[in-house]
Design a protein around this nucleic acid. Sequence first.
DNA 1: ATAACTCCCGTACTTAGGTACGGAGTCAAG
DNA 2: CTTGACTCCGTACCTAAGTACGGGAGTTAT
Lengths: 133, 133
Amino acid sequence: MYTISKLAKEANVGVETIRFYEKKALLQQPIKPSQGYRQYTPQALSRVLFIKRAQHLGFTLAEISSLLVLSNSNCEEVQSLAEHKLDVIEEKLKDLTRLKGSLESLVSDCKNNSNNKICPIIESLQPSNKTNT
Amino acid sequence: MYTISKLAKEANVGVETIRFYEKKALLQQPIKPSQGYRQYTPQALSRVLFIKRAQHLGFTLAEISSLLVLSNSNCEEVQSLAEHKLDVIEEKLKDLTRLKGSLESLVSDCKNNSNNKICPIIESLQPSNKTNT
DNA sequence: ATAACTCCCGTACTTAGGTACGGAGTCAAG
DNA sequence: CTTGACTCCGTACCTAAGTACGGGAGTTAT
């Protein structure tokens, strides 16, 4: 059993983060005993760690909320949530890859620019320019 | 010359976005004539389009602000800004690629899961689990 | 029993890039 | 000359995921 600050320390988050999760109903707030402080169980710690791991996998708190609801029985829906997240990630990868290509070619234009004519990057951003992605 | 709403329409943004850019000093607000509305020049339109293009390249408004300051003379600094952005993008690509790998393996575990045992995704998020990235 | 910690709780603030609203002024058309 | 559309301006609101703050209550150590 932990006080809130112990729990926070174990989970490597701030006390305010714990309270924030409680407000978002990601975590149940233990009842306040008639005397002393609220006591957090090891299960609460597990849950916070679960949330942090899911965040590292790219899930938002809203999605994690769904994961937690589904976690006790519904493998298929959990899977479909993960697949959807996978789609989003692939979309982002595509965008970033395209971006990377554009920027790389602009930077290499800069390097070929015999010193300080009109900067090719700026030039490409001018609305008169047509060679833009 | 345009009124604000014409300008906004030409640039495919909302009127409020124009005002927002003015507040951020990305765009100079034309002086208000003693009668009638503020008049926006074609140069203002160019600038809004510049901003939008730069955003599509992944620059933030703060960075675009720098780009605009540097745009009249400093190719090297513009280039270094672009290179820095490129680094950030590459970092993000790495993260997302790692994420994609993790999620793909979890989803494939799900597919091999003879129906509805403990969901492998949920299992992997449990703090007792060690096989986590 | 008093200082020095924690806890509890609500509220406001943060970043980024806008969007929405409300009231007053202005402009063009019928 | 009035109606409806548009401008002007400030302020508040939005999402996401927290962080910061302030005052009062409870706890622990000396």
